[in-house]
Design a protein around this nucleic acid. Sequence first.
DNA 1: CTTAGCACTCCACTTCCCTGAGTGCTAAAG
DNA 2: CTTTAGCACTCAGGGAAGTGGAGTGCTAAG
Lengths: 351, 351
Amino acid sequence: MELTDRKKRILRAIVETYIATAEPVGSKAVAELSGLDVSTATIRNEMADLTELGYLEQPHTSAGRIPSPAGYRLYVNELMDRQQLTIQETQRINEALNLKMEELDRVIDRAGKVLSQLSDYPVFTMSAVKERVTVKRFDLLMVEENAFIAVVMTDNSVVKNKLIHLPDQLSDTQLQLLSAVLNNSFVGLTREEMEQALDKMEAHTAPAAFQLISLVVEFAIEVLEDQSQQKIRTAGITHLLEHPEYKSLDKAKPLMNYLSEEDGATSLPVKLDEGQNMNILIGPENVSEALKDTSVIMASYDIGDNMRGVIGVVGPTRMDYAKVTARLSYFADSLTRMFGKELPPGGKPEE
Amino acid sequence: MELTDRKKRILRAIVETYIATAEPVGSKAVAELSGLDVSTATIRNEMADLTELGYLEQPHTSAGRIPSPAGYRLYVNELMDRQQLTIQETQRINEALNLKMEELDRVIDRAGKVLSQLSDYPVFTMSAVKERVTVKRFDLLMVEENAFIAVVMTDNSVVKNKLIHLPDQLSDTQLQLLSAVLNNSFVGLTREEMEQALDKMEAHTAPAAFQLISLVVEFAIEVLEDQSQQKIRTAGITHLLEHPEYKSLDKAKPLMNYLSEEDGATSLPVKLDEGQNMNILIGPENVSEALKDTSVIMASYDIGDNMRGVIGVVGPTRMDYAKVTARLSYFADSLTRMFGKELPPGGKPEE
DNA sequence: CTTAGCACTCCACTTCCCTGAGTGCTAAAG
DNA sequence: CTTTAGCACTCAGGGAAGTGGAGTGCTAAG
């Protein structure tokens, strides 16, 4: 059954006041704020209906109402105004992103921090993943007789290096030979394939040579592992403490721990279906126990080469959805615009 | 004036019980715990003396006593037992450090985390600095016609690379030429010297070539900057919340913010005089306002090549100094042993 | 269907009191 | 001169009781 327009306006007024004040909303407040020209008694009747329908909750008999998760859901789906960003905010974002166009990771880290400041909530970022990452080429650079630098470049254009010390001396020719072996046998392989190839090679290779090869290949494997790992970082956890629902430490502590422990954050619900680029999880919709009273808003950004990342905001269910989604989507779009292919026209902040 | 032995035992008992319980200590508790066979009245007299001398404080008339900063100072200087680590703990530390002997930064990061878990306090780490860092050599690797990898190796054996895209195509010969210029003119220079050399070169070099050179040199400058910067990281800030002095959020928030904002942490009092390898700052001895009710224990570790880092623990003045110093010094020693030259015999965990 | 009125509920806050741990002082004992 | 016992005093913390007020649900009238 569809709600009447008046019920919607009442629900909306309740959600928004509750978001702003964090306190149960009574019929009087609704009468004033909803813009409806009816008495509090009428409002009370409507509120009783809405409670009946499961959109509102009552902490105790004589308190006002607060939105239920279903109420929030309805709000974000239908009722919410899409907020605009101020010019200062867009500037701030742009500065944060443009800043020297450093490495991807660092830009995203910084993006997380700024977003956290703008939204007053903690933010998590997940750097992009690709299904199949392989090594594109190996380079070896002699440094001293017993040390060289191994440079590994992956097919998503990440370059990593490592200084490798050797027990024995090594000639230039040997190094070139090594380079040839590596580039012939280990290019284009994924991590697992490399491990297999290495195992197979062990049988018919001289131990000394094999040791040398595996030194470099193991480094390459590490690099690939690192690439395919979903690295989740969080920023601005302390913002939690600013919100009244985390005034009691007993409430704040578990969530803060969950977010600050890497392991915890790893299980963040960073599923984002293909095509969809913004997702809101309200309270109990979260799988993880620690997030039961928490909402998560996340957006994805596209990076070239099949890569995709997620950036998201964590806050109490009474989170300012309108404000956060506006900022978040602008961020995600900016990241996409910055790293990825062209954005289809229309994907601008003014949604 | 020297304190009598009995006064010292009483002070010590008070400090230790207060550390354990976080509550003012009364004469009765002292009588039982100090091991002295005297009445509470005698203890009271002594405690009155100690208060007079400034070693103890009284939150209000009829509460027990708590140690003053001077009392803590005396405790850490003279009274404190040097704690031993359990075997499990040393194992834990060793695992954390050995783990794959990754990059310096990561090892230290991880060390910070484990230390924070072991001590239940937040930990900060500062990576090492060297006075004069220069580039030891440049290497350039062609990737495509319009892109190459620049590899920069500094004299403290740090290797960084960057993928550089070009507007135009570049031949192998040109690349070799570029490499020669770089290795001839910019090796052995510090950041500032490089900037000067680059300026001077601009006058008598073809614009196209100069642009190419400066692309790489600017990257090298970034690398050096990065090296000479004191990078401070913190770990385990949420541990603060476990301690009763930060039960009220008003207390916890400023300190947490101070620690989690990079800028704030930068001003941490990481001075450590040469030769000294453990330092304790108690409450008001800290310069920064946010640390006034906070103690900082820090230890330095040596890394080869004139480099030195600091790792430290932040906690309430009522922090378990004995426990923390034991763990901290073992950590610092392990880091030194791992990266640096041999430790002089005797620098073992047992003080 | 809307509204005014009214009795009722219950949280949040204040006030008050009380308890108990701890103190300082004094006077006696060693 | 030091130690001890005794005692009156202080004060934070916690519970009990009381109160105000916001909000509700119901009823009856417009």
